[in-house]
């Protein structure tokens, strides 16, 4: 449809994102080899979160999508996070 003007993403953007993703991957492998104790998991997950954010924003075009689609995606991730937190209300406080 003519009013659904497509945004053509330049190659350069994809290339840069890939470089960033690879760098983050190696950084996360590097960081877990350092002894961080219980923060290792947190570090690895933070890297994974940043990577997934890049994939969602650029590869999956969310940056160029209408706000309501962004809102839906954010909502789904948020509700999943909430469900995990609630589940842990049980497991964290078991005696």
């Amino acid at each position: 449809m003519s009013n659904e003007k497509h945004h053509i993403v330049p190659y350069r953007v994809y290339a840069l994102v890939l470089v960033a993703l690879l760098a983050l991957t190696f950084a996360s492998i590097g960081i877990v080899s350092i002894e961080l104790g219980k923060y290792t998991v947190a570090a690895a997950l933070i890297f994974a979160t940043i990577k997934s954010f890049l994939v969602l924003t650029y590869f999956m075009h969310l940056k160029y999508d209408k706000p309501y689609i962004k809102a839906m995606v954010a909502f789904v991730f948020a509700i999943f996070f909430v469900v995990i937190v609630i589940t842990f209300l049980d497991y964290l406080y078991r005696t």
């Binding site: 996360s28 998991v41 690895a44 997950l45 890297f47 994974a48 994939v55």
Partner: peptide, 29 residues
Amino acid sequence: RAALLENAGLYWHLVDLIWIFLFPLFYLI
């Protein structure tokens, strides 16, 4: 009419997205 290709792309990125979390949770702990 690019929707099919774009959707194939979206699906493939989903597969990537899942792996981004599977990798640290299984291999990096």
